[in-house]
C-alpha cells in the first residue's frame, strides 16, 4: 500500500513537472485555445488540431529561422571553444604545481558562484571598449571563458590515478602530449557531460543577447521567444516546441555519458 502511495506521489510530481511541456506541445497544435491578449490558456486541452502556428512561424516569418540558426551557431561555437579552453585550464589546476594555485582556483569558483547579472555590466563595459558590442563576439567571447566546465573537469581530473601521470612523465616531458594522449581519452564521458551542460546553458541564454546585441539579425531564438515581439501566442508555443527539439536530441545522444559523467564527478 505504502509502495503504491509512494509511486503515486512520485507520478504526480513527475506529471506536475511535465505539465508545462505537455501544455506547450498540445497547445502549439491547437486552435483558439489561447487568449492572445492575456496570454492565458482558455482550456486545458485544445479544441481542434491546427498547424497554423508552425506555418506562420516557419514560412511567414523568415527571421525566426535566422534566429534559430543564430542559436545553433552560438551554442555550438561557445560549447566547443569553452571545452577547448577548459581542458588545459583544468589540467593545470589539477596536475600542475605552482604558487597561488589554490587562491586562483578559489577566485574561479567565486566567479562561478556569482549570478550572471553581476558580471553583465563589467562584460558590457569591456565589450563596448573593445568595440565588440552588436557583434557575435559579444556573445561568444565572454562565454568561452565561463568557469563552470573548467570546475567540473578539474574535479574529475583530480580523481585520476596519479601513477598513470608518473608513468607518462617517464615517457615524455611534453605536457601537451600527456594531456592530449593520456588525459583527454580518459575524460571522454566527462567532456560529453560538460558538452551537454554548456550547450543547454547557452542554448537557453536570454540576458546576454538582450544586453549585448541590439541588432535583431544577430539575436538567438531564445531571446526572440522570451520577448515574443511580433509573434502571436500560437507562434510562440510552436517556437518553444521547435526550440526544445535540439536539447532533446542532445539528451538522447548523450544521456549515457551524462549519467556516467555526473557519477564520476560525484555530483
Amino acid at each position: 500500500m505504502k509502495k503504491i502511495l509512494g509511486k503515486s506521489i512520485l507520478l504526480l510530481c513527475a506529471l506536475l513537472f511535465l505539465l508545462p511541456i505537455l501544455l506547450t506541445v498540445l497547445h502549439s497544435f491547437g486552435t483558439q485555445s489561447v487568449d492572445a491578449e492575456n496570454f492565458r490558456l482558455t482550456s486545458l486541452v485544445p479544441s481542434g488540431f491546427s498547424l497554423v502556428g508552425y506555418y506562420d512561424l516557419l514560412i511567414e516569418h523568415f527571421y525566426v529561422l535566422r534566429n534559430f540558426w543564430n542559436s545553433v551557431f552560438y551554442a555550438c561555437s561557445i560549447t566547443c571553444l569553452n571545452i577547448v579552453v577548459s581542458v588545459p585550464a583544468a589540467y593545470a589546476f589539477s596536475q600542475a604545481r605552482f604558487k597561488g594555485k589554490e587562491l586562483l582556483f578559489f577566485f574561479y569558483i567565486m566567479l562561478m558562484m556569482m549570478p550572471l547579472q553581476v558580471t553583465l555590466l563589467p562584460n558590457y563595459i569591456g565589450l563596448r571598449d573593445m568595440k565588440l558590442l552588436d557583434t557575435p563576439f559579444a556573445i561568444v567571447l565572454p562565454s568561452v571563458f565561463a568557469p563552470f566546465s573548467m570546475f567540473l573537469l578539474t574535479q574529475y581530473m583530480k580523481g585520476l590515478e596519479q601513477s598513470y601521470m608518473e608513468a607518462a612523465l617517464l615517457e615524455t616531458k611534453s605536457v601537451f602530449r600527456i594531456m592530449l594522449q593520456m588525459i583527454v581519452p580518459q575524460l571522454r564521458t566527462c567532456i560529453l557531460a560538460v558538452f551537454v551542460f554548456v550547450f543547454a546553458e547557452y542554448w537557453n541564454m536570454v540576458e546576454q543577447a538582450d544586453i549585448y546585441l541590439k541588432k535583431e539579425t544577430l539575436k538567438p531564438l531564445s531571446g526572440l521567444l522570451a520577448i515574443g515581439e511580433g509573434l502571436t501566442t500560437s507562434e510562440v508555443l510552436a517556437g518553444s516546441v521547435i526550440f526544445m527539439i535540439p536539447i532533446v536530441i542532445l539528451y538522447l545522444y548523450f544521456h549515457d555519458s551524462l549519467e556516467v559523467g555526473l557519477e564520476s564527478m560525484k555530483l
Partner: peptide, 28 residues
Amino acid sequence: KTKKAANIIFAVFFTVMLLLTLFAKDLY
C-alpha cells in the same frame, strides 16, 4: 535504439529546418 532514434530525429529535424531556411520566401 535511442541513439538510432536520435540520429533519425537529428537528420530529419535539421534537414527540415535547413530546407525551410533555404526555400524561405524572404530568402527567395
